[in-house]
Design a protein around this nucleic acid. Sequence first.
DNA 1: GACTAATGCAATACCAATTGTTACATGACT
DNA 2: AGTCATGTAACAATTGGTATTGCATTAGTC
Lengths: 136, 136
Amino acid sequence: MKRNSRLSLALHTLGHMAAEPKLWRTSAEIAEHAGTNPVVVRRVLGRLRQAGLLISEKGHAGGWKLALSPNKITLADVYVALDERLTASDDIIDAPSCSIEHALHRQISAVMEDVERSLIERLSATTIADVHDMRH
Amino acid sequence: MKRNSRLSLALHTLGHMAAEPKLWRTSAEIAEHAGTNPVVVRRVLGRLRQAGLLISEKGHAGGWKLALSPNKITLADVYVALDERLTASDDIIDAPSCSIEHALHRQISAVMEDVERSLIERLSATTIADVHDMRH
DNA sequence: GACTAATGCAATACCAATTGTTACATGACT
DNA sequence: AGTCATGTAACAATTGGTATTGCATTAGTC
């Protein structure tokens, strides 16, 4: 897989789940289709479960399934569930000793926050059910 | 330094240069102020020279200086000179075998391109001279 | 109740990108 | 000539993300 594949993997999987919301899928099946490892799948989907987007069941007939109707889950929900960010969050931690660095940081941060907001707004306009319809 | 520090280093340095545009600075001085290595400074500033934003001179009285007036250099100029991107460009290379993955990729790419465009537009509204004034 | 099949999770190995460092050639000024 | 700077290549160190292995836990099946 490639870098920052968490979002791709998550959206891809939810896209398929939107087609058959009642089907339980195992992490092994999902991993094979996505070309990755079952543990990686469980790690990523685990976050979506914490966010209330997915349900998982242990045991013999276990697996993964949507927790909500496909038209209730937007791309933005997945984006924030995975804690994706355009900017490295550790920028905020640093104490800028230099006044110019400080001013720059404030300006850049303000712009990036706006951009991030508009990104999430754009992503929230599309549901995983929409994605399934868009594929023609 | 921290991740993706190229942009921070570049903007920070240009911010100082905007205060005294005629002063030649050595990579050693810049590196010390920024808490990094002279070679790293030369690598980053070299890109800005290629983009026509900076001038460098070898030899005894050499160093680095702005190639343009501070109010002619915007944050966007620096951003594009360093080839910074919100998204990994290798997303485009992959051939999506799955129709759902394909539809997702198209949708996400379109959104990200718009967002990137708006980011650059926002950054082009501020010059390094502005940054110097904002510091109060 | 033993067996099988799934998730949950920790620990570790692996890999790629970034940054830091060393070394050296080149050019310009004194 | 000597000194001080950039330019650049090569390599080490660090970091973030991904893959893998192992094992505990849980639920269904025989």
